[in-house]
Computed example of a mutant assay.
Amino acid sequence: MEALGPVGAGLIVFLENVFPPIPSEVILPLAGFTASQGSFTIAEAIFWTTLGSILGAFVLYGLGRWLGHDRTVWLAARIPFVDPGDIVKTVAWFGRHGKKAVFFGRMLPIFRSLISIPAGIEKMNLVTFGLLTAAGSLLWNSIFVVAGFLLGENWSALLEYADILKYIVVAGVAALVIWWFVRAVLRVRARRRERELERVL
């Protein structure tokens, strides 16, 4: 960040949006701390990190748009234990709650990146997607950049709270994955029993 200035902070956030394992919870307060040292202004830090968030989101939006609804369902049908019907239900849910999902998703680890893909699949209006992404990213980025700026050299204290949020989200995702897997296995077994009964009859 000292070498590239606020553009460097924006570049790292862009990569974080495309490659979720890079943690914005570290990047943003560090950008705020760097701004507090006079390397650049806090306004520049917020502007460039938010721009990085928006551009990264559009990359994954483009991926979702390229995949499209039909191709996604087709791919899902070829993945073991994945029911294309679940994809259709997910898409229907996104159709009802997509705007809220895009806005609030920007404030959740992992989801802030992945939520762009279903938005692209459903061909959400580009302007609407961009505005919701900008609003959610601006709010999230500002909180962490300003906190890092105010805390100064103690900016790393934020990581403890960010980790708690991350663990909650990861635990929730893990629970959903386990629930989905168990349900998929039970569904496969039920279908096998039905086929066996049909053969007997």
Rank of each mutant, 00 (worst) to 15 (best):
P80E: 09
A162N: 03
L55I: 14
Y161E: 06
L67V: 12
W155T: 09
L63E: 08
N125P: 03
W48F: 15
W179H: 14
Q37K: 14
G95F: 03
P118W: 08
F14H: 00
D163V: 13
L138Y: 13
A135C: 11
V88R: 12
I46E: 08
A174M: 02
I164F: 11
Y61A: 08
L131R: 06
W179Y: 12
L126P: 12
R187W: 01
A3S: 09
L159F: 07
N125F: 04
L176R: 00
I22N: 08
W155E: 12
M107W: 03
P84K: 03
N154R: 12
F14R: 00
E44Q: 15
I178F: 05
N141I: 11
R199C: 00
S24E: 06
L186N: 11
G120R: 01
G105M: 01
W179A: 14
A119F: 02
V102S: 02
P84Q: 10
I42D: 09
L139D: 09
P29W: 03
D163Y: 12
A135I: 11
Q37R: 14
L139V: 15
L15R: 01
R183S: 13
G8K: 00
H69M: 10
P118F: 07
N125I: 02
L131N: 06
F19Q: 11
L131D: 12
I121F: 10
G5E: 00
V200Q: 03
W140F: 15
A35W: 07
G136Y: 08
F111P: 01
I54Q: 02
W74A: 15
V73H: 05
R187F: 01
A57T: 07
V185A: 07
A171E: 09
S137W: 13
L165T: 14
A35P: 06
V73Q: 12
G120S: 03
R187Y: 02
V13F: 02
D86L: 10
I22H: 02
V182N: 01
K166V: 13
F14A: 04
V59K: 05
I42A: 13
R96E: 15
V82H: 05
V188A: 11
V82P: 04
A175H: 00
